[in-house]
């Protein structure tokens, strides 16, 4: 399978007389089979970076090596062949609106000159993988966003790529759909061993599936490493902002898993009573506040808290009862759900 190496990559754009440095001496090493996240705020240079990986954007300086091959040294023709080995999906799906689902999936094969019959067999196989066998004849305008992205994934996989680039692939989708697309990507990574590069501005996407992550700010990589490590102890301001700015806590994942986690919700009036503090005093047992957040739900300010109750303290039930008596909504959060909540 395929690794990606980016060396001293700089990209400058010239627009209306000024020069804009979109990428500034970027160095990255993405190992074969990894799911690698690239995260940053809008305008940081993420799209430019991912487009440089298949040379849709030619670097001003520096190199991109795929499996040790420097893309700059390839002829136009070989470069196009190389691109066929690198699948790509987009925020806007970019399906051909005038072609139905199966023709869309066949499209890269058509470009590669594969016989129509063989292409259709392959396309059906892929539609099955993304759970859309029954939509073969539908046109994109009739599909939901999630279904469109599934078609786009099937299409990107058609030519058996070794690398899949995803530019904000879930940004246009609601949280549930986004979740299912991320699970699909994870599954594809596990089944086929494809290297996946995920561009996003949402930390939740990174924490959900990325093994490693690089944080981009103003065209520079400001921090890079294993996702859990960066999530535990972000060093750069950009990383801290991305993590907390997205309502994430700073807690290491293992710690979350060792607690029984409950979620309590209180609305305006009940928030005034110091319920948590009173409960801690009453039961003389500490509570771990994993997340506290207020949000506007249908015009009402709702407070939400995720609390970690230590297992074995024996008073978990009492805590829950105490909160319920004070009119709070208490729900237990399963371990597997904690990550997506946090």
């Amino acid at each position: 399978m395929s690794g990606i190496k980016i060396r001293h990559l700089t990209k400058k754009f010239e627009a209306d007389g000024h020069i804009l440095t979109a990428l500034d001496d970027v160095n990255l090493q993405i190992e074969s089979g990894e799911i690698y996240g690239i995260i940053g705020m809008s305008g940081a240079g993420k799209s430019t970076l991912v487009r440089s990986i298949n040379f849709l954007e030619r670097p001003t300086e520096g190199q991109v090596l795929i499996d040790g091959v420097d893309l700059a040294e390839l002829s136009e023709r070989d470069l196009r062949k190389k691109r066929a080995d690198i699948g790509m999906i987009f925020q806007g799906f970019n399906l051909l609106e005038q072609k139905n689902v199966i023709s869309n999936v066949c499209f890269p094969l058509e470009i590669a000159g594969v016989k129509k019959k063989d292409a259709i067999v392959r396309a059906r196989e892929l539609l099955k993988r993304v759970n859309l066998e029954d939509k073969e004849k539908a046109y994109p305008s009739r599909l939901s966003g999630g279904q469109k992205q599934r078609v786009a994934i099937a299409r990107a996989l058609a030519s058996n790529p070794k690398i899949l680039l995803c530019d904000e692939a879930t940004s246009a989708l609601d949280p549930q759909t986004s979740d299912s697309i991320l699970k699909l990507l994870k599954q594809i990574n596990e089944d086929l061993g494809i290297t996946i590069v995920i561009i996003t501005h949402q930390m939740s996407v990174v924490t959900q599936i990325c093994d490693k992550v690089a944080i981009v700010e103003n065209g520079k990589i400001v921090e890079e490493g294993k996702t859990a490590e960066i999530f535990d102890s972000p060093k750069s301001d950009a990383a801290k902002e991305l993590i907390s700015g997205n309502n994430n806590s700073f807690l290491p994942l293992e710690e979350l898993n060792s607690d029984k986690v409950i979620r309590i919700v209180f609305s305006e009036n009940s928030a005034f009573e110091p319920v948590i503090a009173n409960a801690i005093l009453k039961f003389e047992t500490p509570i771990n506040i994993l997340k506290a957040d207020t949000r506007n739900v249908g015009g009402i300010a709702k407070g939400e808290m995720l609390l970690g109750l230590h297992y074995g303290s024996g008073v978990e039930k009492d805590f829950i009862e105490y909160f319920r008596e004070r009119g709070l909504v208490v729900t237990e959060v399963k371990e597997t759900e904690v990550k997506s909540h946090v």
Partner: peptide, 18 residues
Amino acid sequence: VDPGVVEAAKSMGADNFQ
């Protein structure tokens, strides 16, 4: 024509004629 669709075709290795 949506430039995104053209970009997708390019990413698949299509040449200008295609």
